[in-house]
């Protein structure tokens, strides 16, 4: 997006967007949406990983919730039961989840397409069952997970947590942006185009796929740890197979061709579920399903890409009008 907008207004646009993000949690602005925004931030982090995987390597994972869950649980168990510092436990959780993804990545990525989808789904189900059986507290989950803090500053209100989550979320987005623009990104697009061709020019296809898979797992794990340390209670229900499906929905709705689509996807689904459809009582899921279908039917390339197109057309018309007189 940024590349297209190059010009003197670029920085002002970015500044305005950033300002908007900063102002959201204030009571006099959009304070009532703080908690929804926190969830949007967390889901964006999980979805970006999937966008990279799906949009740039063309491979589907139906098991992202498993990494979201292991991140949350490892971090929670370390900090609550073993008394490790929450920041350190977050880091260990991310490393452990990444290692886990690496180990299973090689056998699983010998599969592709629908077989990969069903294999990752199976993985998600296995992790879900293990969390329920072996996780402290069983299906009811574990409580009393410590909050994150810096020095004496404890992230104990949604106002403070909002900034924490969005700091991580933007960091994840920027890192992903850099990856997409780098040599790795070009390699990924080559893989998406044609694996055989990519291989012929010396790209180690399997290795790249597994790397991205590991990265997506680390993102999901970070999001999971952040969730655990701010809800203070987690249970396996937040990481079941249905959650993996919702994450795919977010990725596709937002638009796979761009990592910034992840925000749109997560925001659309969260705002629909947690805000717009609340007044409809038991009709909520009917309308949710309908909107999901309509958006995908009429904008199959995703909201973000569609909006970018519209914005491009508007700019073009604006420029023409400017040139006419």
């Amino acid at each position: 997006m940024l590349a297209r907008l190059k010009g003197k207004w670029t920085y002002f646009v970015i500044a305005a967007l950033l300002l908007f993000l900063i102002l959201i949690p204030f009571r006099w602005f959009l304070g009532q949406y703080t908690v929804i925004m926190i969830f949007i931030g967390l889901f964006t982090m999980v979805t970006v990983g999937l966008c990279l995987l799906l949009g740039y390597t063309g491979q589907v994972s139906l098991g992202q919730a498993a990494f979201y869950g292991t991140g949350a649980y490892i971090s929670a168990v370390l900090s609550k039961i073993c008394g490790v510092n929450p920041w350190l436990s977050m880091l260990i959780a991310a490393a452990a989840t990444g290692a886990f993804a690496y180990v299973i990545g090689y056998p699983i990525f010998r599969l592709r397409g629908n077989y990969l989808a069903v294999a990752t789904l199976g993985l998600g189900v296995i992790v879900y069952i293990l969390l329920r059986q072996l996780g402290p507290g069983g299906p009811d989950g574990m409580a009393g997970i410590p909050y994150l803090s810096i020095g004496g500053f404890v992230f104990d209100t949604s106002f403070k947590r909002y900034f924490l989550v969005w700091f991580f979320c933007l960091a994840v987005l920027l890192i992903s942006q850099n990856i997409v623009r780098s040599r790795t990104g070009r390699a990924l697009r080559a893989i998406h185009g044609s694996e055989a061709a990519a291989e012929s020019i010396g790209i180690n296809v399997d290795q790249f796929k597994v790397k991205i898979f590991v990265l997506s797992a680390v993102y999901a794990s970070l999001a999971g740890s952040l969730l655990a340390h701010q809800m203070s209670h987690i249970s396996p229900g937040s990481f079941g197979p249905l959650v993996s499906v919702i994450i795919i929905v977010m990725a596709v709705i937002g638009g796979l061709a761009s990592i910034w689509g992840a925000i749109f996807g997560a925001a659309t689904v969260c705002i629909l579920k947690y805000e717009l459809l609340l007044g409809f009582g038991e009709w909520d899921i009917v309308i949710y399903g309908l909107i999901l279908m309509l958006v995908t039917i009429f904008m199959p390339e995703g909201l973000f890409v569609r909006l970018r197109e519209l914005f491009g057309q508007w700019r073009l018309r604006y420029a023409q009008r400017g040139a006419e007189p």
Binding site: K8, T10, Y11, F12, I14, A15, L18, L19, I22, L23, F26, R27, W28, F29
Partner: peptide, 27 residues
């Protein structure tokens, strides 16, 4: 370009500071 960047950062900081003011007087 550098100039715009500087102005943008200033803008963000100033508004962010202003926004902190009404926080204390919630009714």
């Amino acid at each position: 370009m550098q100039k715009y960047l500087k102005w943008s950062v200033m803008l963000v900081l100033v508004v962010a500071l202003i926004s902190l003011v009404p926080m204390g007087c919630a009714q």
